[in-house]
Write a protein that binds this DNA or RNA. Structure first.
Ligand code: FES
Ligand code: FES
Lengths: 143, 143
DNA sequence: AAAAAAATATGACTTAAATCATATTTAAGA
DNA sequence: TCTTAAATATGATTTAAGTCATATTTTTTT
């Protein structure tokens, strides 16, 4: 469903949503350990997200990564799409080209509605919102 | 969601469900072309499914692959699990180990119910049933 | 201004998935 | 029984995803 990279990115961004702020930036090495993601790989991912303005970063001493107020308003789907590309979540399950309701592949009926529902959920849920869930103990931040 | 291999396997098995019978076996080369799957790769996949008794095959001249009556009763999920392993469809989306309702990861609530619904659909739908759909024009067999 | 600490940029390496190739076995038909 | 046509078995090659390493740039602190 998601690539490994997207999973890593989500974990990292949520960790930042819960633990960082403009006044409390987090260095890559202090982020990689708790979420259990290879350090250099994570660096690459975050640099990419930073370039796309989905996370904030400051170089140099006292620098690090954090989420700005604006970053926190982003939806989960935006992180996923930034990493995996827009297509991955929308593509036909059997990778058929002309997938639509008029030309449904054999698995379409077994999956399409639920898939749309998931998309909708990912589209409407902000990082902020998930961070609140985590803080209030409704869900956990995975290792 | 599914691996490339699983997609190929589903396409192949459905093609066999629609077009083959014990009296009309299909050779690998005549199967690979219409469903647009690399020939040798497909051979490997089907040999594996054959070993697991999910498809039937006969060697030698006049031989080929086909689906027996029993094969046709198998559920879609069985094909998927045979190729991708039992775990893949059940694993936590963020690859967390102790994923369950008591210990839900941050995305759990956004996806779990829909995912279960999909699983249920794949679990109850037989190849036979999908083949009927295709024959009656309710869905198509993808290239 | 110099030194140090951080992200950034670039690229090399490794691993697993996907693809391709070939030799072997089995069964049919002449 | 011999030839031929098919699946089967095994393994090599390629490609893409994931991982690791290092040099560069930027900013802070002294
Ligand atoms: S046509 Fe394949 S999922 Fe819609
Ligand atoms: S805990 Fe991750 S999907 Fe259930």
């Amino acid at each position: 469903m998601f690539s490994n990279s997207a999973k890593y990115a989500i974990k990292a961004v949520l960790y930042l949503a819960v633990n960082s702020s403009e006044e409390h930036k987090i260095m890559i090495k202090d982020l990689a350990k708790p979420i259990n993601v290879p350090r250099h790989y994570l660096a690459k991912l975050l640099q990419d997200l930073s370039k796309k303005h989905l996370v904030s970063s400051i170089k140099g001493p006292k620098g690090g990564f954090y989420l700005s107020a604006k970053n926190r308003k982003e939806k989960v789907i935006d992180i996923i799409n930034a990493v995996d590309g827009e297509e991955r979540m929308k593509a036909c399950l059997l990778s058929l080209e002309g997938c639509n309701a008029n030309n449904p592949c054999s698995l379409h009926h077994l999956i399409y509605d639920e898939r749309q529902a998931i998309l909708k959920n990912l589209n409407k849920t902000s990082l902020d919102h998930l961070a609140e869930h985590i803080k209030s103990g409704k869900s956990i931040l995975p290792l």
